[in-house]
Design a protein around this nucleic acid. Structure first.
Lengths: 145, 145
DNA sequence: GGGTATTTGTTGCATTTGTAACTATCAACA
DNA sequence: TGTTGATAGTTACAAATGCAACAAATACCC
C-alpha cells in the first residue's frame, strides 16, 4: 500500500457485502426469532417451502445453496416445532417430500409480509433504477443470474 | 402469497446480500486460508492493522464491527502465528497497541494485492456507474455512509 | 441377478461462534 | 482517600457450524 494507492477497505466488495448482509440479517432476525423461535437457517428453509410448496431436502439444498447438513438439521427443528411435515415417496424411499403444515403456512404468510415490509423500508432510500442495479449486481455476484 | 403477487426470494435483499457475501467470501478465502492458514476474522483483523497501522483491539472492534471476543481470539491467533505483536501502553495498561510484524506486513501486502485483483475481476462485469451505485447501496445498508 | 457406484440424508466430532460472566485498570467525585 | 462506575480485554460454557464418515436406497452395467 502506497500513499498514492491506499486500498480502501470500503472498496472491497466482499467486505461491503458481508457488512451489509450481516446488518440486514440481524435486523430481520428479530422478526422470526422472537415470534417463532426460528434460527436463520430454519427461516430460509421455511421460506423455500412457502415459496415453492413441496420440496425434497435435496431441492432445498440446490435452491438455497445451503449445505445438506444444515438443511437436515433445520428440517428436524422445523418438524419438531410443527412447521413442516414429511411425506414418504413410494417410488424412491431415499428422499421424502417436505411441506409446510397449517402452522408453517401461517408463519410463512406472516413472515413473508414482514419481509416485504422490511424490504420496502430498506430499499426506500434508493431510486427504482438504483434498486434494480443493486439487485442485478447481487444476483450476478451470487451466480443467480 | 397470491398468484398475482408472488414474493420472489430473489427480490429479498437480506437473502441476496447473504448469497453474494457468502459467494465472494468463500472464493477469496482460498487466498488467505491456503497460503497463511488464516480464518476470516483473522484476515479482517490483519486487514485493519495493515490498512490503519497501529490499533488497539477496541479500535478494531469499532472499525470492523466485529465483537470484542472475536477480535480477542483473532489477535491471539495472529500473535501465535507471528503476524502481529502487542505493545504495552504505559499510560493506560488496560489496552495494548497491536501492530503487524514484518511477516504480518508482508502477508498484508500480498493479500491486499490479491484483494485488489479479485475485486477488479469481480466488478469487471459492471459499468463504472453500476459499480458506484452498488457500493453506495452496500455502504448505506451497512450504515457505513 | 449380482456386484459396484451414486444419490439422499443423518450422525459424530472437532472447530467456530455468541452470550455472559469475569479480571484488571482507570475515571469520577464526594 | 476511597468508593462507585466505566472501560478493555479474556475466558467459560453452550449453541451452531463444517467436514467426514456413515447408512440406506437406487442406478448402472456386466
Amino acid at each position: 500500500m502506497t500513499k498514492h494507492d491506499p486500498f480502501q477497505l470500503e472498496e472491497f466488495m466482499p467486505y461491503l457485502l458481508n457488512r451489509a448482509a450481516e446488518t440486514t440479517s440481524l435486523e430481520f432476525q428479530k422478526t422470526y426469532k422472537e415470534t417463532y423461535g426460528m434460527l436463520r437457517t430454519e427461516w430460509r428453509v421455511l421460506f423455500h417451502l412457502g415459496r415453492y410448496g413441496e420440496l425434497t431436502a435435496k431441492q432445498i439444498c440446490d435452491k438455497s445453496d445451503l449445505h445438506k447438513t444444515k438443511v437436515s438439521r433445520a428440517v428436524s427443528a422445523l418438524e419438531a416445532k410443527r412447521f413442516l411435515k414429511r411425506t414418504q415417496v413410494p417410488t424412491d424411499r431415499r428422499h421424502e417430500l417436505l411441506s409446510p403444515t397449517k402452522q408453517g403456512q401461517s408463519a410463512f404468510a406472516h413472515l413473508q409480509a414482514e419481509a416485504v415490509k422490511y424490504n420496502e423500508r430498506l430499499m426506500s432510500a434508493f431510486t427504482p433504477e438504483e434498486q434494480e442495479i443493486a439487485k442485478r449486481c447481487m444476483k450476478m455476484i451470487a451466480n443467480l443470474a
